[in-house]
Design a protein around this nucleic acid. Sequence first.
DNA 1: GCAAATATAATAGTAATACTAGCATTTATG
DNA 2: CATAAATGCTAGTATTACTATTATATTTGC
Lengths: 222, 222
Amino acid sequence: MIHLSHNIESSEKIFLRNPTSTVLGQKIIGASVSMIDELGFEQFTFKKLGSEIGSPENSIYRYFENKHRLLVYLVAWYWKWVDNTIDNALSPLQSPTEKLEKIIEILVKPIENADSIPFVDETVLSRVIISESIKAFRIKDVGLQNSKGYYQNYQEVVERVSNVVREVNANYEYPKMLVTSVIEGVHQQRFFAANLPSLTSGREGKDAIGSFYRNFVFQTLA
Amino acid sequence: MIHLSHNIESSEKIFLRNPTSTVLGQKIIGASVSMIDELGFEQFTFKKLGSEIGSPENSIYRYFENKHRLLVYLVAWYWKWVDNTIDNALSPLQSPTEKLEKIIEILVKPIENADSIPFVDETVLSRVIISESIKAFRIKDVGLQNSKGYYQNYQEVVERVSNVVREVNANYEYPKMLVTSVIEGVHQQRFFAANLPSLTSGREGKDAIGSFYRNFVFQTLA
DNA sequence: GCAAATATAATAGTAATACTAGCATTTATG
DNA sequence: CATAAATGCTAGTATTACTATTATATTTGC
């Protein structure tokens, strides 16, 4: 199981009370993921979440200051999960190119095996991240939130992948720009494919997004 | 001056009353752009906008159903403006490659000459678009909004640029994916550069984003 | 196994947001 | 200058986004 609390000890905590350590906390996380997926972040409220899990909203406020902070927590959790997934998938035996191919596959491929976290459906979580995670970042006080370390797990993934990019091509000038372009671009294209298909390319069944981004990365680094 | 009303006649209107045709409407547009820039979209309200322009909020509701619809309007306006800018910048004399280079320049370069719309500062508008336009799209009912034609101007830019992409390389499989990746990627990198510089690459002064995306496009199409 | 500490529930409240309605007044247009 | 249209004013509602207090469960430490 992934414990967020262990990973950001030096930073301020995203939560007020660790939700993974109690039954109510786990219900909050589990239900919020599926409710944000169903309602969208704007229509999601702590009141609705409370009535879903049978607890008053002030109990939820003991875990998270507000719903945005809860979203930031889910985003941090997701990227910790991705970081672990990448870490497990890579071996020192692989060539840098093989590593990068594997990483792109992880970033592009929809999640299927949903069992690493007991009370959250990772498939649904990844759908929420695709649709909503941008709202954790694209805010007026993002710099302040960042200074508190709230995006550290995301940054660690960016760092880790950037390092592999540098292994592939040590002279490449913009590794982080490449990595964040792929991560956010994949989200956007997957959102478009699911919701505004007229704004994206590629037929059903073909792995257009994967093919596009593999090509993007390896041509850029060639 | 750009009149949105002329461009989407076949679609449902984004507004309830055309804001360009009255003084109050123009004050609403002008003040909302600068207020969203200063406050961020979440903290921006019709109440605050009303007290800024000296009108009650219900007068604003006569122009726009809600603040999200106003954002959609600003986004539509911006893309109409970009569409015109691209249209004016291209000439049939140019080669497809020259056209595409010009388009990328327009999409990447921050706006400076701010005089095509009298009551809106395009520099501020483009900052708002970079930070907030994703919130016009990344919503639960985006398909419904799209079916009403609210994103038509954006789609027209995507179409127009995709056509130039096809002129450059008729065999390329994913023109729209390339175009939307560039458009949204540029926004994201510019947001990161301004707010979370640790997540992007490139030194001050150098046109890193432009160089990155020019390279991306022309290597992809090579 | 019990006391103390902690977590949760229940109730009650506030300020702000996101609207809507009705009517009086001002401003534009033919 | 009459009529229509737009705006302002006042008043209201439901919901959101919280906070506070106290009572009741539930853990935990001894």
